[in-house]
Write a protein that binds this DNA or RNA. Structure first.
Length: 298
DNA sequence: GTGCGAATAT
DNA sequence: TATATTCGCA
């Protein structure tokens, strides 16, 4: 098992985005570029939040026992437009009391989640810590907590299955799809809580601390009937419209070779993501959805 | 007061 | 269903 741990850890390391892949973009919600690309320029709203950029802070390494409390994206204010379609001009309502759009857990996002949990060890994997580790701007503790709750259930099911029938039968395909897209660390399936917490001797998430943070861009999706501007949706690249995943994890495909040209404003949209209408596949009459996606693949 | 976790709501 | 919100407890 030791080997396994090492292996998965190694793999994990490899999977970390390299500095080159980390675009120095920094914003909270829709990047200016995106906004431009999408023609989103509603004077009433400000989609961007000043990049408070959390801290490069170090990982709360168990061995270190030090968690960096301060700076974190905590809750960057979200300025997702809310009900008002803007047209009416009525809702000037500041981004106060606004509710965040639902977060969509893409396979990529989930992957980060799993990585974080894996490295913290089940014992230390609590919402706040996980959230910090993930360093996804816009992610809230609640988001993580909710997902974690479900993830735990999933793990429980997995444990139950592996011990009993032993058949690889999937419990609930429908439910497990997302989770199945990310590898579950071996020790997770054990009984975790009993003894031994795994202390991984390694250093904190390199990628995370090297640079600011992985940039995940969040896009808010509007209602179907929204005025022209909001009518686009950045879809889930990791999944097919059908809801089926193609490749759970890919190695690192040739990541686009974008370097940050010094000074040249790179008006590039999200590389691997495609725009697609979510509403079509989503039974939602018109719900705002927030999608966070990694600027790079991973 | 904070934050976790389970229940409950949408 | 997936995610959000609420609620009780440590």
């Amino acid at each position: 098992m030791r080997e396994e741990d090492s292996n998965w850890f190694s793999r994990w390391e490899e999977e970390l985005p390299s500095p080159e892949e980390l675009m120095p973009l920094s914003q909270t919600l829709i990047t200016p570029d995106l906004a431009l690309a999408f023609d989103i320029r509603n004077p009433n709203h400000d989609y961007r939040t000043p990049p408070p950029l959390p801290p490069p802070a170090a990982l709360p390494l168990p061995s270190c026992g030090a968690v960096q409390p301060p700076s974190m994206p905590t809750s960057s204010e979200f300025a997702s437009d809310s009900g008002d379609l803007g047209s009416g001009g009525a809702g000037d309502e500041p981004a106060r009391t606004l509710k965040r759009p639902r977060l969509v857990w893409t396979p990529q996002l989930h992957k980060r989640f799993v990585d974080a949990v894996a490295h913290l060890g089940i014992k230390n994997a609590v919402p706040k810590t996980i959230m910090q580790l993930m360093s996804v701007d816009g992610l809230t503790r609640e988001n993580v907590a909710s997902h974690l709750q479900k993830y735990r259930l999933y793990l429980k099911r997995m444990q139950g299955l592996s011990g009993g029938a032993g058949s690889a039968a999937t419990a609930d395909p429908a439910t497990d799809h997302l989770f199945a897209s990310a590898p579950v660390p071996p020790h997770f399936l054990h009984t975790g809580r009993s003894n031994s917490e795994h202390f991984l001797p390694f250093v904190p998430v390199q990628g995370l601390q090297h640079h600011q943070q992985h940039q995940m861009v969040a896009a808010a999706v509007g209602h179907p009937h929204l005025p022209t501007q909001y009518h686009r949706q950045l879809g889930h690249f990791g999944s097919s419209p059908n809801g089926q995943f193609e490749h759970p994890l890919l190695d690192r495909p040739a990541q686009q070779t974008l370097h940050r040209m010094g000074g040249a404003p790179l008006h590039n949209q999200v590389p691997s993501s495609h725009v697609q209408d979510l509403e079509s596949s989503n039974g939602n009459g018109g719900r705002k959805v927030l999608t966070l996606f990694p600027s790079g693949d991973e």
